[in-house]
Design a protein around this nucleic acid. Structure first.
Lengths: 197, 197
DNA sequence: GTCTATAGCCAGATAGAC
DNA sequence: GTCTATCTGGCTATAGAC
């Protein structure tokens, strides 16, 4: 593993846990097992390092989502595939959703300044398809954007609000993982059950 | 309005928007229209000011939730009441959910050190009730904690991930508010439709 | 490339006048 | 109680040896 990779991995851990303003360059250096000066040698500044981490994180998620949204499947199939593959992926990167949500909220201008809008998740095809399937009587009437919001909510929220939900529902890390494993199929079943004709 | 109140309101705005580490005492002072020294005169330190804000925020939410969770209503009635009243309340404080989630994730130890555990949302009665109604055949079988997670997800997520969802679904602030208004009844209908026998 | 040492700045906190 | 001015510590960033 190159030094740059060590820094990158360390920075991902620290930024995703503490956020941009909470992260310390010293902590990233310690996590990487190198000196603080190397961070600046490799990535020039905290902002540029953060930018690299954020774009990488976002870049991993967006294409997966678009691939599923824009495939030839039915809406129900898409919901099943999305929830399953999103949960599988995020279980390996549990801090990712909260990280992205947090930085977009805390500093929208900064994030927007380097967001890649070409690759952003684009649900317009799926929205049209939902409208079509409603017209065909396959799906019960519902505003398409509300349906998408439901799918994202059920899938992403448990990871974004992990600490809070673990505390409120009194569940351990292990139980949490079991529940998320179960949600890979449970969510889609619930959503489809709610809107099927 | 007393100076203390002016500070408190200003601090709430800044902390909820930027988080603990992103917030600046100077910015809070400016927002309050007073001097930075007054902050320390009134609240001693940034941490204590934050603590006051966080506990107030959490203290507003928890009792409402418990009241609904522990009433004499049926599960379906509770879901309807919770989603409706939670959304109504949070529409007046749109930064609140993300604020609480973020700080619990970024600095669990700090937050836990002053969290009021007596008043925390406690779903144990509701969980027992769900099990009972499943046994009675009123609700389709589902792990109670998964059902609760679904209710919270559908209700809280749109506010927590506001920026991201506005960007992805291409909705304006006004459209967002219309959608949230609609969700006051839509969510409960969806959830109940998915689990009713 | 990798380190040590340090510059320079900024934010939280305080002293002290009024 | 409210201000101005200032201290102090910590953090980003850089200079410079090796």
């Amino acid at each position: 593993m190159t030094t740059e990779e060590k820094i990158f991995n360390a920075a991902r851990v620290v930024f995703q846990k503490k956020g941009f303003s909470g992260a310390r360059m010293q902590e990233i250096a310690d996590e990487a097992g190198i000196n603080k000066a190397m961070l600046h040698y490799c990535f020039k500044s905290k902002e540029l390092l953060f930018k690299a981490i954020f774009m990488n994180a976002f870049g991993q998620l967006a294409p997966q989502i678009n691939e599923i949204f824009n495939s030839q499947d039915t809406v129900f199939e898409k919901i099943k595939k999305f929830t399953h593959s999103y949960i599988s992926f995020v279980m390996l990167n549990p801090y990712l959703p909260q990280f992205i949500i947090q930085e977009m909220n805390n500093n929208p201008d900064f994030v927007m300044s380097f967001m890649n809008f070409e690759n952003r998740p684009n649900p317009s095809i799926l929205i049209a398809q939902i409208e079509k399937e409603i017209a065909e009587g396959i799906i019960q009437p519902i505003p398409p954007k509300q349906l998408l919001l439901n799918v994202f909510s059920m899938t992403v929220f448990p990871f974004a609000a992990q600490m809070m939900m673990k505390g409120m529902l009194q569940i351990s890390d292990i139980e949490f993982n079991i529940m998320m494993e179960e949600r890979k199929t449970l969510i889609a079943a619930q959503i489809i059950n709610a809107i099927k004709t």
